[in-house]
Design a binder for these strands. Structure first.
Lengths: 158, 158
DNA sequence: GTCGAATCGTTACAAGACAGAACGATTCTC
DNA sequence: GAGAATCGTTCTGTCTTGTAACGATTCGAC
């Protein structure tokens, strides 16, 4: 753990608060899904596979912004636990089409529950109207910054 | 780079957006101060030293949440570049009191400029009133979550 | 058709960051 | 004055990560 900058004049700026709270949110989320024996990268991959079944590993690597060699290990871990499957495509036997198993689907439901609880905990300081306002502002920022929906760049500790 | 979760029902939840945007903000900031030949941990340390001159390395390690062994390398780097100084305390020669040099002060001013530009770029999607609203909401979240002002937990790539 | 270039997944490798424990030097306590 | 405690440093082992080669398979040109 380290620290970073603190911006302009009076108190921290929005960018620093975003980075600080974002790192905190990521850590807390990692703790929560750790109880399901999952790491954040594993969770992200599982969600990405479920979002569009049958994609190749290379396609996923491109979308997730990770080197293909890293994806191999990730898929291995999920495969060993029976959460995803590699199916050879008869038309093009080079690529492995990834699919989520039933066990994977079940786990995804639990992940969604964890996500809701985490979301609620992070916004504990805000009432319902304020949460809606925050979410709208963040959505506009994410859009303007060109962030891919559902993809989180740069997690630590696989 | 990896990815992470995407929360509840309709679209991403606030917690995911916070983590996603926060990581993005941290990366962009790292790029900006990279042009000043600084890493985020170095920048954070420099700011921390300036915030309270004369503190010991151990005191800083506690505040920043980093192991003392890591701080040594960081202080070395800043010392070699003449940005901070280790001054032995005559009263207690065990500890090294850290101080920012004039060159360090000058660099801090440039860092502040970079921080303002970064802040502005991150909020480009919002008008002034919306930025104030966002900042207020984020400030309350950071406070409620017990985050230490000015300290950013967990940066990657020193 | 066939030969070469390109693509996919995998493996191997090297580089770097990190935390934790062990180590001298110095100071505090009794 | 002797032992425990503190500070900074060094050392070591582990882990993660990106890059580069490697077979297998398919596509394109001729």
């Amino acid at each position: 753990m380290d620290d970073a900058p603190q911006p302009p004049g009076p108190g921290p700026g929005s960018a620093f608060l975003l980075a600080q709270i974002g790192a905190h949110a990521a850590m807390r989320f990692a703790e929560r899904i750790g109880e399901l024996d999952l790491t954040p990268p594993q969770t992200g991959l599982l969600r990405a596979v479920a979002a569009a079944p049958g994609r190749s590993q290379q396609a996923l690597a491109t979308v997730l912004g990770t080197p293909p060699s890293r994806l191999v290990a990730l898929v291995d871990q999920l495969d060993e636990r029976g959460l995803v499957q590699r199916r050879r495509n008869p038309a093009d036997r080079r690529l492995h089409a990834l699919h989520v198993t039933e066990a994977g689907e079940k786990l995804l439901q639990r992940i969604a529950e964890v996500g809701r609880a985490h979301d609620d905990a992070m916004c504990a300081a805000l009432d319902d109207a304020e949460r809606a306002t925050l979410r709208a502002l963040l959505g506009r920022i994410a859009d303007e910054q060109g962030l891919t929906p559902g993809v989180h760049p740069g997690y630590r500790h696989a």
